[in-house]
Simulated assay, not measured.
Amino acid sequence: MLDSGDSPPLRPRHPQVVALVVVLALEFVALVGITVFLVFELLVAAPESYASAIALTVVVALAALWLGAIVVGAWRGGSWTRGASIVVQVLLVSVALGSFQGFLPRPDIGWILLLPAIAVFVLLFRSPVRAHLRPPLGDDEA
């Protein structure tokens, strides 16, 4: 059990850091909701291909788990979360752009995906967020 001397000091988080974590958390909640919907659909509807339906459900569930880890890492100030967040947002932008065009375009879904991705991109390059996600200095760099 940790005593008060072993716990890391609490540091106040800048509002932009909180905004980043909130947007990432909302994306996580949406992805969990999509996973639950896909599992429900898999159980009540007969898909054209069970293999494809199961594979899609597993991939979305893994993406939700990964995004959940990114949210926790961003809150804790993990330096790895910046690159991981950029990758997730690039994937969201690509799906959003695909939603604006194609055989059955859905611009409403495109905007729902695009706007949070842009917000995360902007926040990731703000000074307070960069400082929060900066790797800790080692003994040789101090």
Rank of each mutant, 00 (worst) to 15 (best):
L97I: 07
A55E: 09
G98V: 07
G68I: 02
S127Y: 00
L38K: 11
L91F: 15
S79P: 02
L67S: 09
L65Y: 06
G33R: 12
G5S: 11
F28P: 00
A19K: 04
G33A: 14
L24S: 13
V58Y: 14
V129R: 00
A64W: 11
A84T: 06
F28L: 10
E27K: 03
G77N: 04
S127N: 10
S52K: 12
G33H: 10
E48Y: 03
V90Y: 13
L133W: 02
V58M: 13
P12W: 12
V18E: 13
L114C: 05
D6Q: 15
V71L: 06
S99F: 10
T57G: 13
I112F: 13
V17T: 08
D140K: 13
G110N: 04
L26Y: 09
G5V: 08
W80F: 10
A30M: 04
L65S: 05
G73Q: 05
P116H: 15
M1C: 13
R13T: 02
S94M: 14
W80I: 03
S7V: 12
L137H: 04
P15R: 06
V93I: 15
A53H: 11
A142P: 02
S85W: 07
V58T: 11
P15C: 05
A74H: 03
A45T: 00
A69R: 05
S52D: 15
I34H: 10
S79G: 04
G110F: 10
V71K: 02
V32D: 07
A30S: 05
I112K: 08
G68H: 01
L133F: 04
A46S: 01
V18C: 13
L24Y: 13
W75H: 12
P136T: 01
I54Q: 05
W75D: 12
L113K: 08
L20M: 06
I109E: 09
I118K: 00
P136W: 02
R106N: 08
V88I: 07
L2I: 07
H14D: 15
F100L: 14
L124E: 00
L56H: 10
G102T: 05
A64F: 12
L38V: 01
G138C: 03
E48T: 03
D140C: 14
L115M: 06
L24R: 14
Q101E: 08
V120A: 03
P105E: 15
A119D: 13
V21A: 11
D140E: 14
T81D: 07
G73L: 04
A55F: 09
V60E: 11
G138A: 08
S49E: 15
G78K: 02
D139A: 15
R106F: 06
V59T: 08
G33E: 11
I86R: 15
T35C: 02
W80K: 00
V122M: 02
R11D: 09
V39P: 00
F100D: 07
L62V: 08
L104A: 11
H14E: 11
L31G: 02
A63Y: 14
I54L: 14
L43M: 03
I70F: 03
P128C: 06
T81R: 03
R13Q: 11
S4W: 12
A117P: 07
S49Y: 08
I86H: 11
H14A: 13
P8W: 12
W75R: 12
I70L: 07
G78N: 03
P135Q: 02
L43P: 00
I86P: 05
D3G: 12
V71I: 04
V88K: 02
V58F: 15
H132W: 15
V72A: 14
I109H: 04
